[in-house]
Amino acid sequence: MIRLLKIEWTKIKTYKVFWILSGLYFVFLALGIIMAEFMINNMIDNMNKHLPIPVPHVNIYFFPEVWQNITFFASIRYVLLFPAILVIILITNEFTHKTIRQNVVNGLSKTEFLLSKLYMILLISIIITVFVTISALIIGISHTSDITAGMVTDKLVFIPGFFITILTIMLYAFFFGFIFRNTGLSIALFTLYTLIIEPVFYYFLKSPLVFKNDISTYLPVNAVLRVTEYPAIPVLKKMMGLNLQDTVTMGAALIPLLYATLMVAIVFRTLIKKDL
């Protein structure tokens, strides 16, 4: 595992595109996390112009709700696209430059090649999760008075939840990269699917005319987004009377993992069978 990670590290260490995209991602992620409260309160201000009784400003950065709120903002569709596109580029590069052939010729087995990409995805997921965890910790500490250990550990389950979100979306990208093999095509199809195709399906399936039981939540990307589906904003919750989530359920976490496992299995089967 260490050897394969070292190989991947050599591939990206001096690859500018990777570092520029990663840098942009972390900047946007940090900005998103810092600006989230401001943006919500801005929305409330706009809403208040039309309301007879103004809604008070919210605070989303205190323990334990900070875990849920920050992981929610860090796993918005558009934000998730960044690491996914990064994974697609790293995989399709190998086909564009035929370096996958060269890797195999030089003595890497196809299985090792696939594992090296999977380990890299795992490592990136861990790094992003650690980044989000530390951000939430710092923000939580600076926004919470009279902190107790219980307040910090409550809702900590959103961190492993976020890890599953980020891991599975990158595994979906792994699938797209290995199946389509072309950088532009893979990115275009992945983005189209995530932003347009699946949302259209989602509303189609949701309409009671189609199915009696709502199966829209089981669509692959939606299943990923559902792990941390809602932010925790008590005032809005009370006001809107919505039954929002307050934990990550096993069921919600398992569905995207199942999809991802299936996709990885398909990639292994096709790559090992096919000629390079």
Partner: peptide, 15 residues
């Protein structure tokens, strides 16, 4: 077949 964005030495280190 090499990684175009890596130097000759880095490409060889990879091999």
């Amino acid at each position: 077949n090499f990684y175009p964005y890596l130097s000759a030495a880095t490409n060889l280190r990879l091999v």
